[in-house]
Design a binder for these strands. Sequence first.
RNA 1: GGCCCUAUGGUCAAGUGGUUAAGACGUCGGCUUCUCAGGCCGAAAUCGAGGGUUCGACUCCCUCUGGGGCUACCA
Length: 498
Amino acid sequence: MTDDIRVRYAPSPTGYLHIGNARTALFNWLFARHYNGTFVIRIEDTDASRNVADGEKSQLENLKWLGLDWDESPANPGEYGPYRQSERNADGMYQPFIDDLLERGLAYKSYKTSEELEAERAAQKAAKQAPHYVYEYAGLSKEEREAKYAEFEAQGLKPVIRFRVPEDKTYEWDDIVKGPIKIGAKEVGGDWVIQKADGMPTYNFAVVVDDHLMKISHVLRGDDHVSNTPKQMMIYEALGWEAPKFGHMALIINAATGKKLSKRDNDVLQFVEQYRELGYQPEAMDNFIGLLGWSPKGEDEIFSLEQFKQMFDETRLTKANAKFDQKKLEWINNQWMRRDKDRVMPQLIQELVKAGFVTEDEAKEKKDWLAQVIEVAGVDGISYTRQIVDLVREPFFQLGDINQEMLDYLTSDDGRKVYAAWNKAYRALPDDATAEDYMAAIRKIQNDLEIKGRNLWNPIRIATTHQIQGPNLPEMLVLLNKQTVLVTMDAVAAKYLN
RNA sequence: GGCCCUAUGGUCAAGUGGUUAAGACGUCGGCUUCUCAGGCCGAAAUCGAGGGUUCGACUCCCUCUGGGGCUACCA
C-alpha cells in the first residue's frame, strides 16, 4: 500500500471517550501510521439533541493522552474542511447531492408523520413481517407526485428526503476483516431517510458524502456497521463514486451482560477518563486495547504504541467478538508501572497528597522517604496508582484497631515474653538501625526464648504497627519514626499487657 | 421474526490437512528462613454437536446449536 491511504476516526460528541471508541480510533491510527497514511478526525454531530457540551473536547483530549495524534481535524483543518458535519451542512455541502438525487428520481420527499410510521411498523410486526418502509407514490407520474407534495406542503407538513432503494440489487464487498459479505438491497428495510425534516443529513448519507469528499480510502469500524454498509454503497453507486475499502472489527462485549459494551452499562468502567483518574498508564490502555481483537505473531504481550505501529497487520484482526477482561487490563497496567518506576513514583506520591496523608510541601521534602515507603509497602503488587493509598495507610499514616485475634497473640504467654524482650532490644538499638539490625535483634529473641514463627513475629508486628500482616517488618521499622513507634508500643502495653 | 457476522480452556488468543493444540490473564498447588504482596516452579482443553470429504481433520464442505449485531427523521 502507498501513501494515498487516508483513514478517519469519526466520533459523535455524545459523550466521553469510550473503550470501544478508543479501540476504533487506535486501529485506524495504527492503520494510517503503519502505512504512512493520513489520519483524519471528523466530528459527526448531526444530531444536535444528543450532542454533549464537552464531548468533542474530552474525546480529543483523551485521544491525545493515549498518545494518538492526527493530521487533520476541526482545529487543524486540511484541504477538505470543515471537519464537523454540522458546519459542512451549514456550508451547504450535502444539499447539491440531495438535489441531484431528487432531480434524477433516486430520492423523494416523504411527508409521513412519525405516528403513521410507527403504526405501519406495528402492523407489519403484528403480521409477522419485517418492518419495511412502503413507497407511497407507487404508480404515480412525476407530475402527480409533485402535486401530492404541494398538497402536503399546503397542510404545513415538513418532508424528509428518502432514498429510493433499488430492491433487486445485491451489494457485496470484500471486508478487510471478515472477507466477502453479501447483502440484498431488500434487506435494508425499504427507502431510508437521507435528510431529516430539520435539514440535517442522516448519518448513512453524510458519511458517504464526507468520506468521498475527504478522499477516505479505508474505513475501519465496528461490526455494528455491517448492516449500514449496503445503504452507504447505494449512495456511492447513485452518485457515481467509488466506495472505500471497508473493514468491520469484532465488538467488545461486556462480560457481565454478554452484550456489546454500551455507554449505559454501569457495571464496568469503560470511559478512558475513568481509568486515567485511577492512575492507569496510557501505554497500558493502548497495550490492552491493542490486544483486544488483534494479536501479534510472537508470544509477547507487552507492546508500546510504536511497536504496535511497526507490527500492525490488518489481516490479523480477529473476527469474533471479545469479552472485556478487566483483570488482564490490571495486569498490563501493573507491568507498565513496574517498567517505568521513575515516571510513576511522582504519580504515586500525588495519590498520597490527594488522600490527605501529606501536603504538597511535605511530599517534596519527604520525597525519598515516601518513595521508600511506597516500595516497601508493595507497589509491585498494585494494579493502578490509586491503590497505593490503602497499601500505605497503615501503619505509615494511620494506625488501625487491634482486634481479638491480634490480642490473642499479644496476651498469650509467648506474646508477653516476646513483647518484653523486644521492648528491651528495640530501645537498645540506635535510631539509624538497619533492617539487618532489626532482623538480628528478632533472631536473638528467637534463640533466647525458643519461640519462632507467628508466635514470635506477630506480637512484635502488632505492638509496633497494629497489624497482623503486612510488608517485611524489619524494612518497615527502618522507615517508621522510632519515637512514634515507642509511643505506640507503650500504649499497647499500658492498655493490654498489665 | 428477517438479514448479516461469528464459534479453540473461565477470559484474550496462536494455529490455514499430519503439532506433545503456542503464549498471556485468571484459578489451583509447591517453593521463597512470620504474614500479605512480589518472585520462581508446576497443574488443568477429548478444539460447540452431528454428518460428510480425505490415508489422515481444530484446520475443507453441509446441517444443527450457541453467541453477537442490525432491523430509527441515533450515530
